[in-house]
C-alpha cells in the first residue's frame, strides 16, 4: 500500500465531511499510515477465483406485505431536530452565492 500522506488524509477528511485542524492531522495521519501498512498484508491472500462475501447470510429481495402501518408523527420526527419550522427540518443554506 502506498504511504498515506498528510495531504491525502486531509483530502479524505474533506470527503468524509470532517473539519480536521492541523494538530489533528499531525496526530491522525501517522496513525493511519501504520494501520494501513498493517491491513495491506491482505493483498494477494485470495485468488481471483474466490467470490467476495458482502454479507454472512445470502439473501435477496426480502419482501413484506404492502400495508399501511402507523409511523412517527411529525412532532416525534422533529423532536430531536437542531432547528425546525412549520413541521419541517430547518437546515443551513445548501446553495452557494453563485447558485
Amino acid at each position: 500500500m502506498p504511504e498515506i500522506s498528510r495531504d491525502e488524509v486531509a483530502h479524505l477528511a474533506d470527503l468524509a465531511r470532517i473539519d480536521l485542524d492541523d494538530a489533528e492531522l499531525d496526530h491522525l495521519a501517522p496513525q493511519l499510515a501504520v494501520i494501513l501498512e498493517s491491513v495491506a498484508s491482505i493483498r494477494g491472500v485470495a485468488g481471483d477465483d474466490v467470490p467476495p462475501t458482502s454479507h454472512p447470510i445470502p439473501m435477496t429481495n426480502v419482501f413484506r406485505e404492502d400495508v399501511v402501518v402507523p409511523g412517527l408523527t411529525a412532532e416525534q420526527a422533529l423532536a430531536g431536530a437542531p432547528e425546525s419550522e412549520e413541521q419541517r427540518f430547518k437546515v443551513p443554506r445548501i446553495l452557494g452565492d453563485e447558485q
Binding site: M1, V39, A40, I42, V45, A46, V50, P51, P52, T53
Partner: peptide
C-alpha cells in the same frame, strides 16, 4: 483493499 477483504472473508 475492500474487494480483497471481501474475498478473504469468504
Amino acid at each position: 483493499y475492500y474487494g480483497q477483504a471481501q474475498k478473504v472473508r469468504t
